[in-house]
Structures are given as structure tokens and as C-alpha cells.
Design a protein around this nucleic acid. Structure first.
Lengths: 228, 228
DNA sequence: ACCTGAACACCGTTCAAGT
DNA sequence: ACCTGAACACCGTTCAAGT
């Protein structure tokens, strides 16, 4: 537990750091005025001198997670294979989505916060700018650039929110639960559920496989929206 | 307010009906043991005689919303143009997704409940069976049938959870908020945010337009996964 | 058997009081 | 100016008591 010494003065930055820590370790349910106070050796209501309410605080913490995310994506020599063609911009979109998912999955709770509405704060705005630029570079008409932006963000944030919902569960526990569910589907009536029983073993693949397939299909669909 | 007479005995069905009503009118935050008790003229703790906890109750209510959803989709003469080709099965998938979104949007809170994990209850299982059947009929290999199922469900449920997050706000209020956000993006620095400022007027299209574009792109992407 | 009442351990937030 | 303490209006849940 990173309990701070009570001598230091309380600042927005120290509160946000404590919340980020709680968000990372126990999800959004681990964050409360009481747990923050305990982490900082301060009265539960002390944060109200620095933030209007919990929502403002959670959004600032969630935005902090996104720091540096848009940097070094879509530029030549960034690891993604690139010959400068316009289609490569969509590969960069996919790469950016994978990075976004990674930070959301490593901070359970952040996705829940982002799913409750856009924060429209510095790091999120940088991400928006980057994503819009890449989609335009890919050759999509303007109206479809913004639609594609929303589709992609809703998929990444929405699926991360779902995938981190059973927070505080280890990957092993998640997989164990999926195994039980597969067995239940397998045991269903083959007359009533022919496809479910036949495909039971293939249901609930790992969360990362699910995401990878989804983002690839989405990007492939966008590729076919590019006018020739 | 549909306050019931206190003479009738309490049943699972009456409790679920009350919760469905609360879910529809005020989202998941409107549901509590106290509000349920008030709606049914009963003590807040009375429901514990019929349900293990709030989670079990919310899941049963959320599953009830899905009743009849899978009926009459993908059969000939259902309104969708159909010539019996395998590609039409994906049109039926899209239709099923639109229906699912419609019920989730008309019951704010239901999407939040579904986003917290699969209920694996009767109506959801019927939906799963239908969706798997259509994806297999479309010609996808088995492994991709289940991946496509998860991708599509995560997109529909995830985006509905995001879109119903600012619950208790009328569509007019949502649109007014979007207008303010567009104006703020438009007013940003064109040097730092060239794409954001240029595309500001096109950001935050209506939630239904966003969904329609997303589901079309996703289905288009799946169409290209079908082996020839 | 079913529902009530009281109690417990939590929430977020406000506001007067202390320093 | 900044933090504390007490208080308020909420949560979900348990369990003994009433009928």
C-alpha cells in the first residue's frame, strides 16, 4: 500500500495518483471517498477542496491513463509495416485501438469511467485528433471519418468495459468461469439448441482473441468504405 | 406510478415487473431495494425471500426484455429482402442486432446490466442460438462463427451501454450537449487540432446514425470473412 | 411461509468548526 | 486556505421477530 506521509500537502495530482492506483488494482468499485482518504491519510471529505465531485476526479484519472497513447503511431518507422500507401493509415488506426485497449485492460475501472461519457480532456482530445487524422488519411470521406471514429471508439471502450466488468477476478478465474459456461451450453438440448451445443467448445475464446477478431473485422469493413 | 394493492401476494413475477418498469423509466440507478419496496407497497427487504440478491433480480429483469427477440428473423417472408442466398443470413444478423439495440435503448439500464456479464438465461440463450445459426448459415467457418458472435454482441451491448449512460436525459438534452461539445471542438486551436476543428461539425452525429454505420461496417467486414 | 423492523457496514456530499 | 468532524440522505444485506 503506497500510504503517503501525512505531512505533504494535498494536491490534485496526489489525489489523482491515488485514484489511478485504486483503479488499477481493484476497478471502479475500489474507489470511494473513504478509500481515497485512507490511501492518502486524509479525511474522506478532503478531496472536495480540490475537485467538484467524484465524477470530475474519476474523469481526470481516466484521462491520465491515456497519456502518450497517440504518440509515435502512423509515422514511418514505427514498427508497423508501411509503404506510405493510404491503406496503411487504417493499420495505424488498428494499432492505436490495440494500445487503447491495452491501457484500458490494465486499469480495470478506466473503461467503466470512459463508457459513462467522453471526458473531453487533454489526452482524450489528442487521441481524437490522431484518430480523425488517420481515418482521413486513409481516404474516407469526411462524413464517414467521424462515423468511423465513433464506431471504433464505441467498440474499443464498450468491449473493454464489458471485459473488465467482473473486476478483481484473475484471468485464471475468468477462464475457469468460461469453462463452466461452455460445459453448460454443451449439455443443453441438441434439439432445441443445435448450433449452441455443436459450437459450445468454441464459445468464450480468450478476451484478447475476441477483441483481435472484432477490431480486424471492423477495420476490414472500413477498408471497403474507401472510395476508389 | 403503478403502485399495486398490498393485498396481492408477492411473487418473483411481480417483483420483476416492478424492476422492469423502474429500469425503463429511470435506468439502473432508479432501481434499489427501497424503490422496489415503494413500488410494490412492501418492505425493502421483502424481495430477499424471492431472490438471492439484486444481481439475480436485475439479470432476470434484463433477460425478460429480450423475450421474443429472436422470433421471425431470418425466415422467408419476414420483410427483409431475401432470395435464399447465404449472404442474406448476414442481413438477418444485422436485423437481429437492430432489434436488440432497440429494446436496450428503450429500457435504459438493461444494457448496463447485460454489460456486466452474460445472464445465460432463457431469452438470452434463444438469442445466442439464433445468432450462431445465422452466422453458420452465412458460411463462416465454425471458429469464426463464435468469434463473430462475440464481436457483434460486444458491439451492440457495449455501444448501447455507452449510449444509455447519461440516463434520465431526454434526446433533446443529449443533442443540446452534443451541440455544445461540437462548438468547443470547433473553437480549438487549428494548429494543434487541424482535423478536430475541420470535422467538428460532423462529430457526435445522432446515436442511431452512429450505431447504424457501425453495424453496417461490422457486417460488411464479416461478409469478407466468408470463404468463397 | 412470508413479510416486517431493526441493525450493520457501506456510499457521496454539505457545511460548520477548527487550525 | 485547507482540512476535520459531524451530519444527512442514501445504498445492499442479514437476521431476529412478528403473523
Amino acid at each position: 500500500m503506497s500510504r503517503s506521509s501525512p505531512t505533504e500537502r494535498l494536491t490534485r495530482a496526489r489525489i489523482v495518483a491515488a485514484v489511478t492506483d485504486l483503479l488499477e488494482r481493484g476497478g471502479v468499485d475500489a474507489v470511494s471517498t473513504r478509500t481515497i482518504g485512507e490511501a492518502l491519510d486524509v479525511h474522506p471529505t478532503a478531496l472536495y477542496r480540490h475537485f467538484r465531485d467524484m465524477d470530475e476526479l474519476l474523469r481526470e484519472a481516466a484521462d491520465g491513463i491515456l497519456a502518450g497513447l497517440a504518440d509515435g503511431i502512423g509515422e514511418t518507422g514505427d514498427g508497423e509495416t508501411s509503404d506510405g500507401g493510404p491503406g496503411d493509415a487504417l493499420d495505424a488506426v488498428a494499432g492505436l485501438c490495440r494500445r487503447l485497449r491495452a491501457v484500458l485492460m490494465s486499469h480495470p475501472g478506466a473503461a467503466q469511467v470512459m463508457a459513462s461519457g467522453p471526458a473531453r480532456m487533454p489526452n482524450e482530445r489528442a487521441l481524437t485528433e490522431k484518430m480523425l487524422g488517420l481515418l482521413a488519411e486513409a481516404g474516407l470521406p469526411d462524413a464517414e471519418v467521424t462515423l468511423a471514429y465513433h464506431a471504433v471508439i464505441e467498440y474499443v471502450v464498450g468491449s473493454a468495459a464489458i471485459d473488465t466488468a467482473g473486476t478483481a477476478d484473475s484471468p485464471a478465474e475468468v477462464e475457469a468461469r468460461h469453462r463452466v459456461w461452455r460445459a453448460a451450453y454443451f449439455a443443453a438440448s441438441p434439439q432445441e439448441f443445435p448450433h449452441t451445443t455443436r459450437l459450445a467448445a468454441l464459445l468464450y475464446p480468450s478476451l484478447d482473441e475476441q477483441f483481435e477478431f472484432g477490431i480486424e473485422v471492423l477495420i476490414a469493413g472500413l477498408r471497403h468504405q474507401i472510395p476508389t
